[in-house]
């Protein structure tokens, strides 16, 4: 089995919370989240040698692209199986999701439920908004213009507001 290069592992350690948040947004069940996480890591591992840094473009932009592309394009095709074929990912530490408790737990749970009812594309908008990405970065991740990001973002916020006010 191939060993992951140290810079890849460092990247993974640094951005693991980000990847976990993507998984959490796109999958409700913990097993599915873990499956998606492994799939994203596998795709990152394969794409990492081709990654080329560009001026004024953050590494996180590329990571969001990979994670969201995997989540959107392969989600319902996944079948649960015990182990991973991706080199190096079997040995990666299994970090549990951050617990959702405390005084805001109910609100957060309600928010996740509402987000869960959005389309895959809308979820991507919500995620990037919650992650406090700029419109410029969102446009760079999604591949649409900043103006369109603004329009779409407004619609998604409206949709989410309606979902939060109406009973599930």
């Amino acid at each position: 089995m191939l060993a992951a290069p140290p810079d890849f592992l460092a990247l993974l350690n640094e951005y693991q919370p980000l990847l976990r948040r993507v998984c959490r947004l796109y999958c409700a069940a913990a097993d599915d989240q873990q499956d998606l996480y492994q799939e994203i890591v596998g795709q990152l591992w394969q794409a990492w040698p081709r990654y080329q840094p560009r001026p004024n473009v953050k590494l996180s932009t590329w990571l969001y692209r990979v994670a969201l592309n995997v989540a959107i394009s392969d989600l319902r095709q996944r079948r649960r199986r015990p182990t991973s074929a991706h080199p190096g990912t079997d040995r990666l530490p299994d970090v549990p999701l951050p617990p959702v408790d405390g005084p805001d737990a109910d609100d957060l749970h309600q928010l996740y439920q509402a987000i869960n009812r959005l389309s895959d594309v809308d979820k991507a908008f919500v995620l990037l908004y919650l992650e406090e990405r700029t419109y410029e970065e969102m446009a760079d991740i999604l591949g649409i213009t900043q103006n369109n990001v603004r329009v779409k973002m407004h619609r998604v916020q409206e949709k989410l507001r309606q979902l939060l006010t109406q009973p599930a």
Partner: peptide
Amino acid sequence: LSEVGATIHAHVAQQ
């Protein structure tokens, strides 16, 4: 289909 580093629009269109 394997190019996951592209923008979401480009990736989905390519898929």
